[in-house]
Simulated assay, not measured.
Amino acid sequence: MTSHLTLGTDQAHARLHDLTVIDVRTPGEYASGHLPGALNIPLDQVRRALPEIRHAAGRGEVLLVCASGARSESARTLLAEHGIPSAALSGGTSAWAADGHALERPAGYDSRAGWSMERQVRFTAGTAVLLGLLLGLLVHPAFQLLSAGIAGGLVLSALTDTCGMAVVLARLPHNRPRPADLAATLAALRRG
C-alpha cells in the first residue's frame, strides 16, 4: 500500500521496478516520452479502468504520472474515492527528465513532430487574446470580449488547477496520433 500521496522523482526512480506506473496523459503526450514501463490510461479513461487498477494495487504500489503532476493528482484523488491507494509523481515527467532520469519513447518517434500540451495551451491562449485585441481595434470593440474570456479562463484554470483548453486541445486529431490501446493496457494490469 502506498503511504505517500506523492513520490519525488528520485524516490520513484529508486523503486521503479516495484511500482505499477500509470501515465494519465493523452496518447500523444505519452508517446513523446514516458517513465520506463509506464502504461498509458488517459485521465478520461481512468474511471473505466478502476477494476484493473484495483487489481494492480493489490499486488503492489501504483504510481500515477502526467506532465506536471496536476492530472496525476486528479487521478489519485479519483482512485482514493474508490478506496484504491496510489501516489502521484511530484512534478510529473517534466521533473523526471529535469532530474536526469530517462524517458522511453516508441521506436521511430520524432520529438519534433508535436508540441507539449502546455505549449499548445500557451500558443492557443496567446493567439486568441491577440486576435481579440486586434479585431476589437480594427473591426468592433465587442471582439475584445474574446480576450476577456480567455483571461478569465486562465484565472479559473490557475484557481482550480485544471485546464479546460487542454481538455479541448487533447481531443484534436494531432494530439491523438494513435488511440490509447486501453484493452491491452487493462490486460497488462490484470496479468501483473
Score class of each variant (00 low, 15 high):
5 L>P: 03
6 T>K: 11
10 D>T: 13
15 R>Y: 00
16 L>M: 08
17 H>F: 05
18 D>K: 03
20 T>P: 11
21 V>K: 08
22 I>N: 12
25 R>A: 08
25 R>F: 07
29 E>K: 08
29 E>P: 06
30 Y>N: 10
31 A>L: 09
32 S>P: 08
35 L>V: 10
35 L>I: 13
37 G>N: 00
37 G>F: 04
38 A>C: 06
39 L>Y: 09
40 N>I: 03
40 N>W: 01
41 I>F: 03
41 I>S: 04
42 P>N: 02
44 D>H: 14
53 I>Q: 06
55 H>W: 09
55 H>A: 12
55 H>P: 05
56 A>C: 06
58 G>P: 12
60 G>W: 04
60 G>L: 07
60 G>K: 02
61 E>V: 11
62 V>K: 08
64 L>I: 14
65 V>M: 00
66 C>T: 11
67 A>D: 06
69 G>Q: 03
71 R>P: 02
71 R>S: 02
71 R>D: 00
72 S>L: 07
74 S>Y: 00
76 R>E: 01
77 T>D: 15
78 L>W: 07
82 H>C: 03
84 I>A: 02
85 P>N: 08
85 P>F: 02
86 S>P: 00
86 S>V: 03
88 A>D: 01
95 A>C: 00
97 A>C: 10
99 D>G: 06
102 A>H: 14
102 A>N: 12
104 E>R: 09
104 E>C: 12
105 R>K: 09
107 A>F: 05
108 G>A: 05
109 Y>G: 05
110 D>F: 07
111 S>Q: 15
114 G>K: 13
116 S>M: 10
118 E>P: 12
118 E>H: 11
118 E>F: 10
119 R>K: 10
121 V>T: 13
122 R>G: 09
123 F>D: 05
124 T>L: 11
125 A>Y: 07
125 A>P: 13
126 G>Q: 13
126 G>S: 10
127 T>G: 13
128 A>Y: 04
129 V>E: 00
132 G>F: 03
133 L>Y: 10
137 L>V: 12
137 L>Q: 14
138 L>W: 11
138 L>F: 10
139 V>I: 13
142 A>K: 04
143 F>R: 01
143 F>P: 08
146 L>V: 14
146 L>T: 01
147 S>F: 04
151 A>M: 09
151 A>K: 03
155 V>C: 06
155 V>S: 05
157 S>K: 00
163 C>M: 06
164 G>Q: 04
165 M>P: 07
169 L>R: 09
170 A>L: 03
172 L>D: 07
172 L>W: 13
175 N>E: 09
176 R>L: 11
176 R>W: 10
177 P>N: 03
179 P>A: 12
181 D>R: 13
181 D>M: 08
182 L>Q: 01
186 L>S: 10
187 A>K: 14
189 L>D: 00
191 R>T: 14
191 R>F: 02
192 G>K: 11
